[in-house]
């Protein structure tokens, strides 16, 4: 049974802060920072936006593109690491916001930045087994960046939603390959407001090892080489890592660039690579072969081999595109950033 993407949606909030603004607040050399991460600016939600609101916007667009009725959806899984409620799932709110039926499987998933893609894998299983006809996978984050710490330069805000099914596919997910281990490169303890990470340790032992492990594993099983792919999209904690891992795997830069969004909106965590995929779907011709490899700290990767269909081009303009949302922006300064991100300590909301 062919399984894949029936529709997709993305949401990037309007506000942006330049990394230069943040560097000035903390006495860092703005040019050196930009050179380290190749991130110019990042997306920021307004005070009234959060991973739930963004998930709703992205999912609504996904349903529009899929052209299915909400009552046909049998599952909604949300992958996130910045839930507004530690206990009370985003997926439950999506059920009513999207007018899904009550008979629906729903759960939130956590594996740092990978969970959005884990939702996709799980839904593929539910579709293949015949338990559901369609499922919505959401990757949404408004992640915590500790002020004055380097993660603040790259942590962005965004959401993406994919409707997985077996009919009317715009892109078939032909193969998947996971690669995971216990590698504590980046974590956030229960009750802690900000994550902690291992700096250089987040590189080779974590990001590179797992992405390469998953990508190579997938290509070996399929007997495919980098040349066989039209696009390669990787998780994007900054703009340097995906370019480097592409090099290490042997993918030329021009196949990687279309899927890079981090330089303009920052690392959207669970949306990251999947947002890159949404952007590529807007330009890819039918029959394009796409490699997507996500990564979540802790650590693990999911590699996907996706092939687009003839149905894809007609669906692109049915809802907001990533390209449009990348252009629709307004700059804010650091004080507004702190206010919108609720980093200023308040005694009440």
């Amino acid at each position: 049974m062919a399984v894949g993407i029936v529709g997709w949606g993305a949401y990037i909030p309007r506000y942006r802060i330049k990394t230069r603004e943040i560097a000035e607040a903390w006495g860092d050399d703005a040019l050196r920072i930009r050179d380290m991460y190749l991130v110019e600016e990042k997306a920021v939600g307004y005070i009234d936006e959060d991973p739930v609101t963004m998930a709703v916007e992205a999912s609504r667009d996904a349903l529009t593109r899929a052209g299915i009725a909400p009552s046909e959806v049998g599952a909604v899984f949300a992958g996130t690491e910045s839930k507004p409620y530690a206990v009370k799932p985003i997926s439950s709110i999506l059920i009513d916001a999207l007018n899904l039926k009550r008979q629906v499987y729903s759960v939130d998933m956590e594996f740092a930045c990978k969970a959005g893609s884990d939702a996709i894998v799980n839904l593929m299983g539910l579709v293949k087994s015949g338990l559901i006809k369609y499922g919505i996978a959401v990757g949404t984050d408004s992640s915590q960046g500790e002020p004055g710490e380097h993660l603040e330069y790259t942590v962005g805000t965004g959401a993406v939603a994919y409707i997985i099914g077996s009919t009317n596919l715009v892109a078939e997910i032909k193969h998947t390959y996971p690669f995971a281990s216990d590698t504590p490169d980046f974590w956030r303890r229960d009750g802690s407001p900000y994550p902690v990470h291992g700096e250089g340790f987040t590189g080779e032992p974590a990001y590179f090892r797992h992405i390469i492990g998953a990508a190579k594993g997938l290509m070996e099983e399929l007997g495919m080489k980098p040349n066989d792919f039209d696009y390669a999209i990787f998780h994007q904690p900054n703009a340097r890592f995906p370019v480097r891992v592409a090099q290490m795997l042997g993918f030329p830069l021009e196949k990687v660039k279309p899927g890079i969004v981090v330089d303009l909106i920052g690392n959207t965590y669970n949306a990251s690579a999947l947002l890159g995929l949404a952007k590529v779907l807007e330009e890819a011709k039918p029959g394009s072969k796409i490699l997507v490899v996500t990564f979540g700290s802790g650590a693990g990767s999911n590699a996907f081999y996706i092939e687009t269909t003839d149905l894809l081009p007609s669906k692109v303009k049915l809802a907001r595109t990533v390209s449009e949302m990348l252009e629709d922006k307004v700059y804010i300064d650091y004080s507004l950033y702190l206010k919108y991100r609720k980093i200023i300590k308040m005694i009440h909301g």
Binding site: Y46, I47, D48, E49, D50, V52, T53, V56, E57, R60, P84, Y85, I93, A97, V330, H348, G349
Partner: peptide
């Protein structure tokens, strides 16, 4: 029409969500 947070009950209580109106363009 967009979906946004309306208010919340301090740090421990419920979060109220609801619809709001967003001008498509022209506000800047």
């Amino acid at each position: 029409v967009v979906f946004r947070r309306v208010k919340e009950d301090s740090d421990y209580g419920i979060i109220y969500y609801g619809f709001k109106l967003r001008p498509v363009k022209g506000c800047w």
